[in-house]
C-alpha cells in the first residue's frame, strides 16, 4: 500500500488526488471524502476558522490510523490531506481518499479513516462569529459514538 499524509495551509485538487490514487493497474475503486467548512455552527453564523495542530504527532496519528485500516481491508493507496491555519466558509478542510481493488474496501476504509481522524488526530478548530467574537469548537459526543461501529 502507498500512503501520503499531508498537513498544510494550501488548498488541494480533488481530481488530481483521485488520479494519483488510481494509478496502480490493480486499482478498481477509489472512494473519497472531502470535508468542507460551513458558515453556520451551533446556532451561530461563522465567518472564519483557525485550525491548530500538533506538528509531528498529527502525522504519526494519521499514519497509525491508515495502518489499522490496511490490516482490516486490502488497500492499494491512501491519501489524507488536512489543511491548517485560517479558513473561510466554503473552503475544503480535509481530504481522505482510498484506492482498492474493489469498492467495498475503498468505501469502508475511507469512512474508518475519517471516523478515527475526527477522534484521534490532534487538530483544534477555533471559530470566529459574525459579531467578531471567537470560540473553540467543542468535541462532539456523536463523533466518539460513531467509532462503535468499527468494534471487532
Amino acid at each position: 500500500m502507498q500512503s501520503r499524509v499531508l498537513i498544510h495551509q494550501a488548498d488541494f485538487d480533488v481530481s488530481e488526488e483521485c488520479r494519483a490514487l488510481a494509478s496502480s493497474n490493480r486499482c478498481g475503486a477509489v472512494a473519497q471524502f472531502v470535508g468542507v467548512m460551513r458558515d453556520y455552527n451551533e446556532g451561530d453564523n461563522v465567518v472564519a476558522m483557525e485550525l491548530e495542530h500538533y506538528p509531528g504527532m498529527t502525522e504519526r496519528s494519521i499514519e497509525s490510523i491508515i495502518e489499522r485500516a490496511n490490516t482490516r481491508w486490502p488497500l492499494l493507496s491512501v491519501t489524507v490531506i488536512h489543511r491548517v491555519g485560517k479558513l473561510l466558509p466554503g473552503a475544503q478542510i480535509v481530504f481522505v481518499g482510498v484506492g482498492a481493488m474493489h469498492r467495498h474496501a475503498a468505501f469502508a476504509a475511507c469512512e474508518f479513516i475519517m471516523d478515527y481522524l475526527k477522534t484521534e488526530a490532534p487538530f483544534w478548530k477555533k471559530e470566529k462569529k459574525s459579531d467578531g467574537s471567537e470560540r473553540w469548537v467543542d468535541a462532539r459526543v456523536s463523533d466518539a459514538e460513531s467509532l462503535g461501529r468499527w468494534a471487532e
Binding site: 470535508g35 485550525l51 495542530h53 500538533y54 504527532m57 488536512h82 478542510i93 480535509v94 475519517m114 481522524l117 475526527k118 477522534t119 484521534e120 488526530a121 490532534p122 487538530f123 483544534w124 478548530k125 473553540w136 469548537v137 467543542d138 468535541a139 463523533d143
Partner: peptide, 10 residues
C-alpha cells in the same frame, strides 16, 4: 509531553 483538549479536526 503534551497536554491538550479533546480534538476537533476533520
Amino acid at each position: 509531553v503534551a497536554f491538550y483538549p479533546p480534538v476537533t479536526g476533520g
